[in-house]
């Protein structure tokens, strides 16, 4: 009986302490994220300033808005191209480094782009990608034709390059953490069983990296939105069309007080993002 009581008290204490620990965070998230988002949801059915109910007009408007469709398309294209490239490139480099020497030194080098201030990056980008910049100088020297990197469709690849340059190092570090968690015994056992390096990677290492892949994918996806900073500072509020992302649009909408469109677009994007994350999680859970 005393033991039961003690156990009950311990259970209550544990519950209370969990709640107490969770409460500040929950309150913070509710006040600063959930409630504002509910307000955004409400505003998406209202006019911008007068706050009159307008049904789904705002949703209809944004899906007829060429700028929104362009920004949505560009952002989706950017994620679709940039994310797999980043994951593959960083995994490849992580494996190379993992097998090589001076791994720590390499880690420091790969994290360097994250430490460079955006303003500096922007200056370098301008020097590099200007029509009369360093890159075109090199192209001309080798007999090629100069490219208007920031004023033509090539600007999309500048954006991808910028994203890869900035995030590869960080992603490598994450992959390496995953690689180090793969039991050496399993790899050795596979090798003893006659598995080649390739087979060892695909059948032993890669399955072990799956949980890490989920985290890295979500983090890289979130980081992909940060490329806007460089794009905005290099090319301004209205860059070449291929560089025009959802953040450009939201930024300009706010300047023009298009709160109704912003709210509707915000809700749509959140829904897409949530669905994406849930689907991703389900897929992982099922495979595991």
């Amino acid at each position: 009986m005393r033991a039961w009581k003690k156990s009950c008290r311990k259970y209550r204490f544990n519950c209370r302490s969990r709640v107490l620990f969770l409460l500040p965070g929950l309150i913070g998230v509710s006040v600063f994220v959930l409630l504002p988002f509910l307000d955004v949801g409400k505003r998406s059915f209202q006019t911008a300033i007068t706050g009159e109910f307008c049904g789904v007009d705002n949703y209809v408007t944004i899906f007829h808005n060429q700028a929104f469709l362009l920004a949505l398309g560009n952002t989706a294209r950017f994620v679709a191209v940039g994310l797999p490239l980043l994951l593959a490139l960083s995994l490849f480099l992580a494996c190379m480094i993992d097998r090589g020497i001076h791994a720590r030194w390499w880690k420091a080098v790969y994290l360097f782009p994250m430490a460079v201030p955006t303003a500096t990056v922007v200056l370098i980008w301008k020097l590099l990608f200007h029509q009369n910049g360093v890159l075109n100088g090199l192209i001309n020297r080798f007999g090629g034709t100069a490219v208007d990197w920031l004023g033509s469709d090539a600007s999309f690849w500048v954006l991808i390059f910028s994203y890869l340059w900035k995030n590869t190092g960080y992603t490598i570090v994450l992959w390496m953490a995953g690689l180090h968690s793969v039991p050496v015994e399993r790899k050795e056992a596979a090798r003893v069983d006659g598995a080649s390096e390739r087979q060892c990677f695909f059948y032993v290492v890669l399955p072990e990296l799956k949980p890490m892949l989920y985290t890295i994918t979500v983090l890289s996806f979130l980081n992909s939105f940060k490329v806007f900073r460089e794009a905005y500072l290099v090319a301004g509020a209205y860059p070449q069309q291929k560089m025009y992302l959802l953040q450009h649009l939201f930024n300009n909408w706010f300047t023009n007080l298009e709160m109704d469109k912003m709210a509707a677009a915000g809700v749509c994007i959140t829904v897409v993002f949530l669905v994406g994350v849930i689907v991703l999680q389900r897929l992982w859970d099922r495979k595991e």
Binding site: N65, Q66, L70, Y238, Y244, L249, N252, W253, N256
Partner: peptide, 13 residues
């Protein structure tokens, strides 16, 4: 073409 592309973005927003 380039100007239209840029202005259009501003006007279509």
């Amino acid at each position: 073409e380039e100007i239209v592309q840029k202005i259009s973005l501003q006007l279509q927003e």
